[in-house]
Amino acid sequence: MFEDEKDDKIYNLIISQGTDMKNEYGQFTEKLFSKVDFLWKESISGSYAHAGESFYSKVDRIILLAGLYKDNVELFENLIEASKKYEIPIVLVRPLGVEEVPELLESKAATIVGWNANCIIDSIKHADELI
């Protein structure tokens, strides 16, 4: 079910950023870029709390990098609220090298994934089936 599926969809993602001491954002996007048959783009807003329906209606998935949660709580809260309001599935990515994720995030996620590129892509593609 991984790469044998032909999928021409361009997935519009929000990927959590912010304070990132371990460069998890950079490492995560490298995983996405490594899968050349996975088409995606990223939507970024100066304020996710104030971005409205016209912004969120184009977003397919919200990716939360759990390793960034502690230093970016407000950002995560804004993205979780948007996920709920606009019915956008959350793909929660475990912190690098750690299996545990914060319970609050786990309860909001459609799916939780580690750092395997194939698993990440599969989770993004099928997150809406899991909510």
Rank of each mutant, 00 (worst) to 15 (best):
20 D>T: 07
104 L>I: 09
90 I>A: 04
17 Q>H: 15
93 V>K: 05
123 S>T: 04
110 A>R: 02
56 Y>W: 06
16 S>D: 07
100 E>Y: 13
121 I>R: 02
94 R>L: 06
4 D>I: 10
106 E>Q: 13
61 R>I: 05
127 A>H: 03
58 K>G: 03
23 N>R: 14
34 S>Y: 12
14 I>G: 00
66 A>F: 07
129 E>F: 09
18 G>N: 06
117 A>I: 06
72 N>C: 08
95 P>V: 07
79 L>K: 05
17 Q>E: 15
75 L>I: 13
13 L>T: 06
82 A>S: 09
123 S>I: 01
32 L>V: 04
88 I>V: 02
104 L>R: 12
4 D>G: 08
119 C>I: 11
122 D>R: 14
56 Y>D: 00
60 D>W: 07
54 S>L: 13
33 F>D: 15
1 M>W: 11
72 N>H: 07
120 I>R: 02
92 L>M: 08
109 A>S: 10
46 G>N: 03
105 L>M: 07
58 K>H: 09
97 G>W: 04
56 Y>T: 01
125 K>Q: 13
118 N>L: 12
20 D>A: 08
100 E>K: 15
30 E>K: 15
103 E>N: 10
119 C>P: 03
89 P>V: 05
106 E>R: 14
112 I>V: 15
122 D>Y: 15
78 N>D: 10
23 N>C: 13
85 K>Q: 12
37 D>R: 13
23 N>P: 05
82 A>C: 06
117 A>F: 02
106 E>W: 10
69 Y>T: 07
83 S>L: 05
29 T>W: 11
83 S>C: 08
50 H>I: 07
56 Y>A: 00
120 I>K: 01
33 F>C: 04
94 R>W: 06
37 D>I: 09
121 I>Y: 01
118 N>E: 15
4 D>N: 13
45 S>K: 01
107 S>N: 13
29 T>E: 14
65 L>T: 02
27 Q>W: 14
65 L>P: 00
120 I>P: 02
85 K>D: 09
119 C>W: 11
53 E>C: 04
78 N>F: 02
88 I>P: 00
98 V>A: 14
46 G>V: 01
131 I>K: 10
64 L>M: 08
79 L>E: 05
11 Y>I: 10
33 F>I: 08
119 C>T: 15
130 L>T: 07
111 T>S: 13
115 W>D: 01
5 E>M: 11
3 E>K: 10
5 E>V: 15
104 L>A: 09
98 V>L: 14
14 I>L: 04
94 R>G: 03
1 M>H: 12
92 L>Y: 07
12 N>V: 14
82 A>F: 01
91 V>M: 08
117 A>L: 05
66 A>N: 04
62 I>G: 00
22 K>T: 11
62 I>T: 02
69 Y>A: 06
114 G>Q: 06
65 L>A: 04
20 D>P: 03
14 I>C: 01
3 E>L: 10
117 A>N: 08
76 F>K: 01
107 S>C: 05
95 P>F: 04
